[in-house]
Simulated assay, not measured.
Amino acid sequence: MSILQRSLIAKIFLVSFLSVHVPLIALVVYLLTGLDTGPVSIFTLILVATVVGTGVCLLVMWRFIRPLQHLAAALQKYPDDKCVLKLHAPGKDEIAVVTDATKSILVQLEELTKKLKHQATTDFLTGLGNRRSLTEQVPGLQSRAQRAGEPLSMVLFDLDNFKMINDDYGHDVGDNVLMIVGEIVKDSLRPYDLASRIGGEEFCIILPRTSGEAALKIAERLRAAFQECYLEPLPKGRITCSFGVVQAEADERLQQLLRRADAALYRAKETGRNRVIGAFADKSQ
């Protein structure tokens, strides 16, 4: 019995063997009963037994193969609905083994795909998104904001005199500065905000449901938090950033937003650094 449970070939062989011999078995039983042995009766008996044996064989074979059909259909639909991961193959035969192995491989593939996607869209140093993440997600955020009639703002900032930190204290300290900036950003924002490191020391934050005036206040809180943070061997207050803030206009593309925010950021640098400037109101804090 265990061989039949584990072997599809053994089950097919047994069913085929019995089905082929149904006419012979029926004939022997018929003769033993002592009923009419005329040629018409014998022919009719063998014909009926053959049809019954063939039908039973096809039905049983269909039941054997049905899990394989389900697997094939699920694999065809896999890119769209991932239903193959929900398949259950009864028994322990080769089809069940193939189904379980396929599910296991696909689960590993899904995990690997998610990991690779995360790596491709995440800055490894800060844990924030990267420029690719920003490019992929901003159009969707803008579309949702327009449909809901809600404002959306951008905060662009970079570290002041970051090259001097690398030159004076080394790149390890510079990396630590970037990491602490990333941690402050993550701790300061809402779950639906989008923060990305888009350059060496340049960062971008997308703020859905946020007006330009509200974005100025958020940027000011971040500016103060950076200035207050302390990281050895840097003196306290050495980590500062300059900010440019803009509110998105209708149908404005990401590159247009970035240009406007970058212009505001440039003015913040020109007017002394460690400050926030909004392009829409042209005021600093």
Rank of each mutant, 00 (worst) to 15 (best):
D80I: 06
Q227M: 07
F124A: 15
I205A: 07
D167I: 10
F64E: 10
V28H: 05
R147P: 02
A195C: 11
A263F: 05
G53D: 12
V185A: 01
P151T: 14
D251T: 04
T271L: 10
E270I: 00
I105W: 00
G127Y: 00
L68V: 01
I206Q: 02
E270Q: 14
R209G: 00
E150Q: 15
D175W: 00
P90F: 08
K11I: 04
E202V: 10
S41Y: 03
A215K: 10
S16A: 14
G212V: 13
L4F: 13
L4N: 01
V138K: 00
F64D: 03
H171M: 03
I205Y: 08
L109F: 07
T122P: 07
G91S: 11
G38F: 02
S196F: 04
K115F: 07
F162I: 01
I3C: 03
Y78F: 15
A96Q: 10
E111P: 02
G34R: 04
R221C: 07
D167C: 06
T113L: 10
R260D: 08
A261D: 13
Q247L: 00
F162E: 05
I65Y: 07
Y30P: 03
V138T: 09
T37G: 04
I42H: 02
E252A: 05
I65A: 02
A248C: 04
Y30F: 15
A250Q: 13
R197G: 14
Q227D: 09
L254Q: 02
Q108G: 09
K283H: 11
D187K: 12
L128I: 11
F64G: 01
Q119W: 02
V15Q: 09
A263W: 02
E270L: 10
R190N: 07
L207Y: 04
C229S: 14
R209Q: 12
K11S: 13
P139E: 10
R267C: 04
R197L: 14
F203Y: 07
H21Y: 07
S153L: 05
F64I: 08
A195L: 11
S143L: 13
A248S: 09
A195K: 06
A145D: 09
G129W: 06
F162V: 01
A120I: 06
F203M: 02
A74I: 05
E270P: 00
N176Y: 00
R131V: 03
L24T: 08
R131C: 06
R6Y: 08
L222N: 04
L24C: 04
L258T: 06
L194H: 15
D187I: 00
S153W: 02
V155C: 08
L152K: 02
L35K: 15
T113E: 11
L128M: 08
